[in-house]
């Protein structure tokens, strides 16, 4: 297991009157190449949980293991172990600070002591992974870019670490529809190259298209952990945390009520397309 959380809990301001429990008894594992969607309502502890998973925040109880090693036992090795997991924060473009795109993306390799000759190649690969052309962007100031481009540069700043687990905290929020789709596709491409992805999202369409496992968080605890198709059957759970089914599933549910569609619950566009074709007696390609 790449990342393993054992009975993790987190309390703000422990031992004070204002103590507030953000997470309680959370156990989960992230295996190589998985694509996990982390969903839950605002205030359910998602952001705290991903910071714990990235080894940035120490849980107030429980254990965090990276590749079997309890990371908080040997603090000296913590910076080096954090390379395993890359965390892209919400609105990551707010953390850009260098004069050029190239310098900003190269922040990690230079800090980590990567040899100077290897840095440009890593930077190029990271920028291309997020869909930015290296030669035309490298010299530009990140602050002259559009919001969407800044977001991509910031994500490249994490991708450049080549993490085995990439955590994205609502990274496509605020992008236009085309930018969203494109970025989602690039994240899937990273996943196909064996990077495990943990994606915090409120967008169930995105979850249905990409994830192969869904973890539902409510009030600081895991209420569901399983495949998307199972997750979207938990209508009570979903309603309880104010999440709707993916649009495709909602359309299918209506067609089903009209008796036009039967069988499985389609989650993606491709699935509903083939279901409808079958219903009309045509053979899906």
């Amino acid at each position: 297991m790449l990342v393993e959380l054992g009975a993790v809990g987190y309390t703000y301001l422990p031992r004070s009157e204002a103590a507030a429990q953000a997470l309680a008894d959370v156990s989960l594992t992230v295996g190589s190449g998985e694509f996990i969607a982390l969903i839950g309502p605002t205030g359910s502890g998602k952001s705290t949980l991903v910071q714990i998973m990235a080894g940035l925040v120490k849980p107030t109880s429980g254990r965090v293991k990276f590749e079997g090693n309890d990371i908080w036992l040997e603090k000296a090795r913590l910076p080096e172990r954090r390379r395993l997991v890359g965390l892209v924060f919400q609105e990551p473009e707010k953390q850009l600070f260098e004069m050029t795109v190239e310098d900003d993306v190269a922040f990690w390799p230079r800090n980590a002591g990567v040899s100077a000759e290897a840095v440009p190649e890593m930077t190029r690969a990271a920028l291309e992974a997020v869909g930015l052309d290296y030669p035309s962007y490298r010299e530009r100031s990140p602050f002259t870019l559009s919001g969407g481009e800044m977001r991509r540069v910031a994500i490249a700043g994490i991708v450049v670490m080549n993490p085995r687990v990439l955590i994205l905290d609502e990274s496509t929020v605020g992008l236009d529809a085309r930018g969203r789709m494109d970025l989602a596709g690039r994240i899937r491409a990273l996943n196909q190259k064996d990077t495990a992805i943990v994606m915090v999202s409120h967008d169930m369409d995105e979850v249905a298209e990409s994830a192969d496992r869904v973890i539902m968080l409510a009030q600081g605890g895991i209420v569901f952990d399983g495949p998307p198709r199972e997750a979207f059957k938990q209508t009570d759970l979903l309603a309880g945390i104010d999440l709707e089914l993916p649009q495709v599933a909602r359309i299918a549910a209506r067609l089903r009520r009209q008796g036009l569609l039967g069988g499985r619950l389609p989650l993606t566009l491709a699935e509903i397309e083939s279901d409808i074709l079958t219903a009309f007696g045509k053979v899906p390609e």
Binding site: L56, P79, G86, K94, W108, G157, I158, M161
Partner: peptide
């Protein structure tokens, strides 16, 4: 606090 964590996530010390 958030920016500090974000920079730590990419190796700032």
């Amino acid at each position: 606090e958030t920016i500090m964590q974000a920079q730590k996530a990419r190796g700032a010390d």
